[in-house]
Design a protein around this nucleic acid. Structure first.
Lengths: 214, 214
DNA sequence: TAACAGTGGAACGGATCGTTCCGCTCTGCT
DNA sequence: AGCAGAGCGGAACGATCCGTTCCACTGTTA
């Protein structure tokens, strides 16, 4: 089919393959910064023309969906990795730190509602929920997590970290780690703590995010 | 000037005076929900025409500035009230709870950058900073606040609470209170705690929010 | 009853954005 | 060598949205 190998440094084909990644990276950066950024901003950031985008994706919605699904898969992968650790508490905290670092929350929740989800995404989201439950259960069993913490509290926690945002990405990461440390300290079991107030968040309370917006 | 008293139930004058409040309330609700909502959404929510808005404000920017300034004044007022309390820790936590409930953070930070600020706002912002410092200092002195917490951490904390958002306002308030409780537990001094990671946030690190955006 | 403050909402002009389209380049096969 | 076409850049188009202006109308005030 070609005289040069598919992965070789050859001309057009390799350039195209490289663009696949360049475009996805640019899209991630741009849409993390502003979920309703124009598609032209992605092309500009990637240093390619608009048609290079439309050759790969049917439209904006398609690109957004892919990005979101990637984030969801990352979440699932990190959760599975964490569940294979032996220490339940460090699995729990390590998982959260990695998810916060990768900005998975912005990729999933903040992009949700801007496209119609696929069935596979639904399945992955369900799997993510199961894994999160397992992680929280194990943390509870270890006695290090305060008992009145429920699974949906994780969503609130991730939202809180994702809300921290400064122009420099690396500095953003540092500040989020600090925020996470405070939250984890607040989530740690202590002997004579006041119970957390209000009805705890329920799983169904955040489904509205996935319904189509605007 | 009028046969009916200015505050009486008389016709047009009273209607206009009532609209002043109705419009401000609607604007607050709308722009809290979406900082870049169109001005027509405010009119619709208030149940008035667009000209009723333009009679009172020179333009969108003017309205946004007023809203933001009101939020800033509320912040200052709550801080002053808190500083007059005797118990430093309950002053600190009570202040945060009231500011979170009033959604002052969304009114100020999230609206900043959409208008050119006035000098008076600059002065009020400076005063707000001084009051926050006093509140944190007193909390430190009481020994209840962990020593490595700095003043700009308050901004991160408020951001984290403002990020919690569900369709129902009252439920949003409850969930934010829960989030605040977790964060305050994390901010409480405990004997053998790991120090908070990373370089602590600095005051100047968040000025960019007040510079004009887009 | 004349003047007018106050109002609703249509209409306008500018800006933005998703998508299409056309002409060009350079590759890879024959 | 030569050609078909994959891949690409970016101008152009049409739709939408939004801030602001404008005008006709209404009830009140003097």
């Amino acid at each position: 089919m070609s005289t040069t190998s598919d992965k070789g440094l050859g001309g057009r084909r390799a350039q195209a393959a490289r663009n696949d990644e360049v475009i996805l990276t640019a899209a991630r950066a741009v849409f993390l910064d502003d979920p309703k950024a124009p598609i032209s901003a992605v092309a500009e950031r990637a240093g390619v023309g608009i048609s290079a985008l439309y050759r790969r994706y049917a439209g904006k919605e398609d690109l957004l969906r892919q990005l979101c699904h990637d984030g969801l898969r990352r979440y699932v992968a990190e959760a599975e990795a964490a569940l294979s650790e032996s220490d339940a508490w460090s699995a729990f905290t390590g998982f959260l730190a990695r998810v916060v670092d990768a900005d998975v929350h912005s990729l999933t929740v903040h992009l949700a509602g801007t496209f119609t989800p696929t069935e596979e995404m639904g399945r992955d989201a369900m799997r993510a929920g199961e894994l999160a439950t397992a992680l929280v259960d194990r943390a509870h069993a270890s006695g290090r997590l305060r008992p009145d913490v429920v699974v949906p509290d994780l969503g609130l926690l991730l939202e809180a970290c994702a809300a921290v945002r400064v122009p420099d990405p690396e500095r953003t990461r540092q500040l989020r780690r600090r925020q996470l440390a405070i939250l984890l300290a607040g989530l740690s079991a202590v002997p004579d703590a006041d119970p957390l107030p209000g009805p705890p968040p329920a799983v169904g309370e955040f489904d509205w995010r996935w319904r189509r917006r605007e």
